[in-house]
Nucleic acid binder design. Structure first.
Lengths: 136, 136
DNA sequence: GTAGGTGCAAAAGTTTTGCAGGCTG
DNA sequence: CAGCCTGCAAAACTTTTGCACCTAC
């Protein structure tokens, strides 16, 4: 009666996972849906949502809460941070990891039991930097 | 033709700001609506949303993207981090600030132009720790 | 007086879910 | 062949918006 890893590998789930691992754009569920329809026209948005949820709950992929109105997903589950472009919402990876134990630090300051941290940056992506310069 | 600080201080806006500054619970827009209705029964949810948006854009309050399905708001705009309870969604404050310049560190790793960072923790709030212990 | 704000309600956008049939293990 | 999964569509939820009236400055 524990979390059962009964993950059945359906065609859909496989394609979703493959596609997510292939891209580095941190797509939203709908982005994924649009991408996937090209190779599997009958896939449904509901299935995409369901699988992204299940896969992230199983720790196979990562669900991101990086601001904006939609959740995003990341096929790379290594420890890394993200930057979000304040203009266009594009999300990039950043390989900074704090050089000391932030959790321990935080634990001293609260009566919550700290599990982990999440570090995110906001900025301007190369493309929007360009646009800004052109407009200025 | 710049951002014009034409903030008119209506009764509603005043009450919203007051109430948000009074609580330390990082309420959602709907939480606020429920709280506010007690002292201003005719206030509308739309007004609450509109004002929280305007106030946070003006930098008077803070909009939080701390996970979960709804945005939360914080009347405290000092630099601080948040913890979110993975069980109940409750959000607490944490006064850790990294001891070196994370933005500079991150800037080396990306072609985004970095503006700022956001550090968030996940954990278990005191109440849910208790519940867990009781159930175990 | 006027521009910005409000309440109300409808609309828009995102995510979840019920159901009947289908496919994996 | 049992039970998980899918497609479809409806529903649920969160947030935004149009409009006519109102009010702070």
């Amino acid at each position: 009666m524990e979390a059962k890893n009964k993950l059945r590998m359906t065609k859909q789930r496989q394609v979703i996972l493959e596609e997510l691992r292939k891209v580095k754009t941190h797509p939203t569920a709908d982005d994924m849906y649009q991408m996937l329809r090209k190779k599997m026209p009958k896939i449904s948005l509901g299935t995409v949502y369901r699988n992204l949820e299940i896969l992230s709950e199983s720790g196979i992929i990562q669900k991101l809460d990086v601001g904006g109105t939609q959740k995003r997903f990341d096929g790379d589950i290594s420890i890394h941070s993200h930057v979000r472009c304040v203009d266009c919402g594009r999300v990039g990876d950043i390989d900074v990891t704090p050089k000391y134990n932030l959790e321990a630090e935080a634990q001293k300051m609260t009566d919550f039991m700290i599990f982990r941290h999440r570090l995110e940056f906001t900025g301007l992506c190369p493309i929007c930097q360009h646009k800004k310069k052109a407009t200025a």
